[in-house]
Structures are given as C-alpha cells and as structure tokens.
C-alpha cells in the first residue's frame, strides 16, 4: 500500500455490524423497544410537543375510502336471533349506560398502542333491549367499510373489558378510528376490533371474518394465535 499508514476495512465492517444488529433485532427488537420507551416516557412527555411523533396507530383499511359518519342518517341495526330488532340513532346509543376503560391495543402485525382511553357501551347493555334468543350465541359485526365483517361469540363479547366504543382518548371516535362506533376487545388482535360498525346480527354460528377468510385465526387471542 502506498497510502500513508495502514488502511483498514472499516467499510465492510460497518456494513456487517449494522446488518447483524438489524437482523438480530428481529429477535430482541420489540421487548427492548418497549422497555426503552417505557423508561423514557417522562422525558418524551416533558420534551416533545404532543403530536410531533406519530401516536403509534396505523390505519388499516380494506376499501377505497373510509366511511363518513352522518349523525342525521346514521343508524345502528341490531337484528338476527332477537325478539325485538333495534335501529338506534347516535343519540339513543349515547344514552345507554356508559362504560369507560383504559386498555392496550395490539395489532397482529406487531405494533401496539398502550393505555388507550375508551368510552362506550358494554355489549350486555347494548343487546338487552333487543332480547337475544337463547340460541343466539354469536355476534356478527358488519362494517360500513364494505366488505369488512367479523364475529365474536357472546362469551367473548361479554368479557369485562369488551365494548362498543364511541369515544377514544376523551374525544368522539375519529373517522380513521371507526367513527362513530367500533368494537374494542383488547384481549384480541386489532382485526377483531371492527371499525365503522353499522349492524350487529345475532347468530348461532361463527362465520369467518374478512381477515379470517385470508388465513388469520378466528379466535385472535393476543399472544396465543396467528403463529405467536
């Protein structure tokens, strides 16, 4: 070598080190990131103006555009195996007993949003006026975003923290989060948390939802389904 001093192959070393760190992060990325963001949360709250960094949500949709909520014409239909089918206006829905909770939202693709504040109606309270028949054991949720559908068994829907939510983090549910109402069931991955719900049909058998027709598990328990 005619260059002064010794040359070192830092180029390939940098390349290999970064590649190895990146590939191995597939094994340690999420736990390490969660610990780090938990530890630095007070610092983030103090230093960063709210809204500067994305809040962690990704908006997954299947249709060309998102449904738009019109309070004047919107109705929630409750039908199927019930004695008294219902057609609720938004105001009527808001007058049902209100429930609140703070829970974590998990998406099957790997991201989570911690400590989301929800307000809405428990399914037991929502369904009571319709008086489901004894053989009605399944709720089928039809979204205004066609052709999105999914189902929960009545037992799943009656978990203590499952609800039909109309508020998120203190404000009416935003359009991209499913305005005016969405399913919230924190024990299950996001695709069971149907957005833009416009109809709930009580049935006696579980049907495959939109993603389940595409290979995802029907019982989408967080951490215990879909290969996790």
């Amino acid at each position: 070598m005619d260059s002064p001093g010794e040359t070192r192959r830092y180029g390939r070393r940098t390349f290999l080190a970064v590649t190895a760190a990146g590939l191995s992060s597939l094994a340690w990325g999420k736990p390490v990131w969660q610990a780090f963001s938990h530890a630095t949360q007070p610092l983030q709250d103090a230093l960063l103006p709210p809204g500067l960094l994305p809040d962690g949500w990704r908006i997954y949709t299947v249709a060309a555009s998102m449904p738009r909520f019109d309070p004047g014409t919107w109705r929630l239909q409750i039908d199927g195996l019930v004695e008294q089918p219902q057609s609720l206006t938004y105001d009527e829905l808001r007058r049902l007993p209100r429930a609140e909770q703070v829970s974590t939202f998990h998406c099957v693709t790997g991201w989570s949003v911690k400590n989301v504040r929800w307000a809405g109606v428990r399914f037991r309270d929502l369904l009571a006026p319709a008086r489901p028949l004894a053989n009605g054991t399944v709720l089928s949720f039809v979204s205004a975003e066609k052709p999105y559908v999914d189902t929960l068994t009545l037992r799943q829907a009656e978990l203590h923290d499952a609800m039909l939510a109309y508020e998120m983090d203190g404000a009416p549910l935003a359009r991209e989060h499913g305005a005016p109402v969405r399913v919230v069931i924190p024990e299950m991955y996001g695709y069971k948390n149907v957005k833009w719900v416009e109809r709930i049909t009580v049935a006696d058998a579980v049907e495959s939802g939109y993603w389940e027709q595409r290979g995802y598990d029907v019982d989408a328990w967080v951490g215990r389904s879909n290969g996790f």
Partner: peptide, 29 residues
C-alpha cells in the same frame, strides 16, 4: 446495510401475511 435490511424486513412483512410462521412481532419495528 439499510437497503439489505429494508429488503429483508419488507419481504418478511409481505410473506408473514401469507405464512404466519414468518411473522415476528419485531419486523415492523
């Protein structure tokens, strides 16, 4: 290095949707 890692993680995101054995919670991170 980033080009390689984008490619690996991107294909895992795509393929993991088709074969759930290849879905890892950290890929999207």
């Amino acid at each position: 290095a980033f080009a390689l890692l984008f490619t690996v993680s991107g294909f895992l995101l795509w393929y993991g949707e088709r074969d759930h054995r290849f879905r890892f919670a950290s890929t999207i991170l």
